[in-house]
Design a protein around this nucleic acid. Structure first.
Lengths: 91, 91
DNA sequence: TTAACAATTAACTTAATTGTTAATTGAAGT
DNA sequence: ACTTCAATTAACAATTAAGTTAATTGTTAA
């Protein structure tokens, strides 16, 4: 966890697309897979990277595992960028 | 250029530290190197990644090449995050 | 032109990431 | 218990990334 994990997770286009997919609400791993042309195993690993960064949360419902977005850790990036830009009032 | 390059560039702690160093103003490659415990060649490559992402600009002054921060491309990340968080009025 | 210095580029090594297929875990139904 | 389906984990191949040392480019000054 932390800024490093968050940025690393965001540095992959598939992972960003997964997050965008989850914008409208939780989806099962299978649902997510169906949007991509890579194998389920590959998506599963992307999901684990996103989960490690706490960008998504998961919960099982019967056979399905649902993933949902957690945007709270994005605040840290916003803060880092803001301070890099100078935290000035006049911006 | 684009979001992908920007995020990839930010996904490395040394590169983020370089950007932070440049917050106060331009520095030569040598000045930047002196803050890190890796070789000048390694820093030079980090600088080229940052430049490719347009996060820094460089200009030569005699023997020295000075680097300075360019924060404008960070807007794109801010926008992407904001829209991911839902662009709602109530936030 | 040669020497000295700043910085980059080249060549190479090692470690990390991404993808594949095959095997495994977990839950539901027969 | 056995099968089936959803999803993950394991094992491996291929690519990318980051670091090193050595060689090269560019600039200044003798």
């Amino acid at each position: 966890m932390g800024l490093q994990d968050t940025l690393r997770a965001l540095a992959d286009p598939i992972r960003r697309d997964i997050l965008s997919l989850l914008k409208t609400g939780p989806l099962s791993a299978g649902d997510i897979c169906s949007h991509f042309s890579v194998t389920a195993a590959a998506i599963s690993r992307h999901l684990s990277v996103l989960k490690e960064a706490d960008l998504i949360r998961d919960h099982r419902e019967g056979k399905f595992i649902y993933y949902e977005l957690n945007t709270s850790v994005l605040e840290e990036i916003m803060f880092w960028i803001t301070e890099l830009k100078g935290d000035r009032d006049d911006a």
